[in-house]
Simulated scan of single mutants.
Amino acid sequence: MNRNELKRLAQKYLAGEASAEEKAQLNQWYDAVDQGWLEKVDTKMPESEEEVKERIFENLKSKGFLNTMPIEEAPHKKRHFSRSLMFRITSAAAVLALVFFGWQFAIDKFDLANGKMVNVPGNKIMELLLPDGSKVWLSSGSVFKYPKQFNKANRTVELIDGRAFFEVKHQKSQPFIVKTNSLNVVVLGTSFDVRAYKKEGSTKVSVVTGKVGITMKGPQEKETVMLLPKQQVVLSDIQNHLIKAKAPEIAVNDWCNSKLVFEQETLGNVFRVLEKKYKVKIVAEDPSLYEERISITLGDQHLSEIMYILGFTKHFKYHIANDRITIN
């Protein structure tokens, strides 16, 4: 999409005249230029559309995406300066419109009387500040539900799908409860990770600090399993019972910092993530390599460095040519 087309669609969006197809184009562009952005959202106070736009606009400026500061011009260049300033303002409005549109895709107000539903786009990590001051980081593809205000008895939220890391503010008389499809997590004040992607067929809870109580859902009341730091439980949809174990040494919350964190993941899945991030194609001549598993945390290294690490760890050789990596 060229600049003129981008400005035209953004102006139509701001005027409320954009069609569903045009909005989809804007959202596609937004996701393409803003991959991996960690967005922070304060949910304590309800925001109007204008307040959301203003907040995101300031966020963009702080990250260096926009520059709206006027530049001193000589008197004979005043006319050129006006056109230049207008162009920059229009461009900023275009970007702001697109970012706000992306925000609307991420946050759906399903029922203002009860709370909000968050749908995190596939290439984002979102940080929420909940009404009680607790924080939650939501991984890409997560669906999360929380109330506008917590009641006096408890602080209940729901991780419908995906992964979340919680830093819960301690309140002795008001337990914090995380509901998932298969189990409930009860704490007073602690930090822990919940992984409950429906496609994986299992739910995992790992504790970083404090104490966490885990209770399986079901028609009959079941005993609560208590977890301490560096402990975790896994509930498989097939086995339908909790397996308690020591948490792996790998930091469970590294993904909150936009790192690539893999815990006993297949190389096939690791390659797919790298393909998407670095826009390459990775092909192994031996298909059995895709099924080998690895636990590793990757930051913003160059792709060649990552491939060296993987090759050294899993004992394979590779060749990089343009946008294709061949493993032999």
Score class of each variant (00 low, 15 high):
5 E>H: 11
18 A>N: 02
25 Q>E: 15
26 L>Y: 05
35 Q>S: 08
49 E>H: 09
64 G>F: 13
66 L>C: 10
68 T>W: 00
69 M>I: 09
70 P>K: 06
70 P>R: 05
72 E>C: 02
77 K>D: 15
77 K>A: 15
82 S>R: 04
88 R>H: 12
95 V>Q: 08
104 Q>G: 00
105 F>T: 15
106 A>E: 02
109 K>I: 13
113 A>G: 01
114 N>E: 14
116 K>C: 15
116 K>P: 13
123 N>K: 14
124 K>G: 03
127 E>A: 08
130 L>M: 07
137 W>G: 12
142 S>E: 10
142 S>L: 04
147 P>N: 13
147 P>I: 13
148 K>N: 13
150 F>H: 08
150 F>Q: 08
152 K>D: 15
154 N>H: 09
157 V>E: 07
159 L>N: 06
165 F>C: 00
167 E>R: 07
168 V>S: 12
169 K>G: 00
184 N>P: 06
185 V>C: 15
186 V>A: 04
187 V>I: 08
202 S>K: 10
204 K>G: 03
206 S>V: 08
209 T>S: 11
212 V>R: 14
214 I>E: 11
216 M>D: 01
219 P>V: 11
222 K>F: 06
224 T>M: 14
224 T>K: 13
229 P>G: 05
236 S>M: 01
250 I>G: 11
250 I>M: 10
259 K>E: 11
260 L>Q: 10
261 V>E: 10
262 F>M: 11
265 E>F: 12
266 T>H: 05
274 L>A: 02
275 E>V: 01
275 E>L: 01
277 K>R: 03
280 V>G: 06
281 K>M: 02
284 A>V: 05
285 E>W: 09
285 E>H: 11
287 P>N: 03
295 S>Y: 02
300 D>G: 00
302 H>G: 15
309 I>Q: 15
310 L>I: 09
316 F>E: 12
317 K>A: 15
319 H>E: 14
325 I>Q: 03
